[in-house]
Computed example of a mutant assay.
Amino acid sequence: MEGTSFLKEPVGGKSVVGKIVDNITNAIINGELKPGDKIPTEGELSEAMGVGRNSVREAIKILEAYGVVHIKRAEGTFVSQEYDSKMLYPILYGIILQKDSTNQIVDLRKVIDVGILHLAVAKLAAQEMPAHRLSRIEEALERLKVEILSPEPQVKNVHDADVAFHMAIVDLTGNTMLQGICNYVDKITRRSRMMAMDQIISEGAVEKFLEMHQKLADLLKTCDSSQISQIVEEHYQYWANVKE
Rank of each mutant, 00 (worst) to 15 (best):
T4E: 14
K8Y: 09
K8I: 09
G12V: 13
G13I: 06
G13L: 13
V16P: 06
I20Q: 00
N23G: 03
A27D: 07
E32F: 08
L33Y: 04
P35A: 05
G36R: 00
G36P: 02
D37Q: 01
K38E: 12
I39K: 01
P40W: 00
E44A: 12
L45G: 10
L45H: 04
L45S: 07
S46I: 05
E47K: 15
A48Y: 08
K61A: 11
A65N: 13
Y66W: 11
G67D: 07
V68E: 01
V69A: 02
A74W: 09
A74M: 10
T77A: 11
F78M: 02
Q81T: 15
K86N: 14
I91Y: 10
Y93F: 09
I96L: 14
Q98E: 13
Q104C: 00
V106H: 03
V106I: 15
R109P: 03
R109F: 04
K110Y: 03
L119S: 14
A120L: 04
V121C: 11
V121Y: 07
A122D: 14
A126T: 09
A126M: 09
E128L: 15
E128H: 08
M129I: 12
H132V: 12
S135G: 06
S150T: 05
N157W: 00
D160P: 01
D160E: 15
A161V: 02
A161Y: 04
V163F: 01
A168D: 01
I169W: 04
D171E: 15
G174D: 09
T176D: 11
L178I: 11
L178E: 02
Q179W: 02
N183F: 03
V185E: 01
K187I: 12
T189M: 14
R190C: 09
M197L: 01
I201M: 12
S202E: 10
S202G: 01
E207H: 11
K208W: 08
L210P: 08
E211P: 00
E211Q: 13
Q214M: 12
A217H: 11
L219I: 15
L219W: 07
T222F: 06
S225M: 10
S225I: 10
E233W: 05
E234A: 14
Y236W: 13
Y238Q: 07
Y238A: 10
W239I: 13
A240M: 05
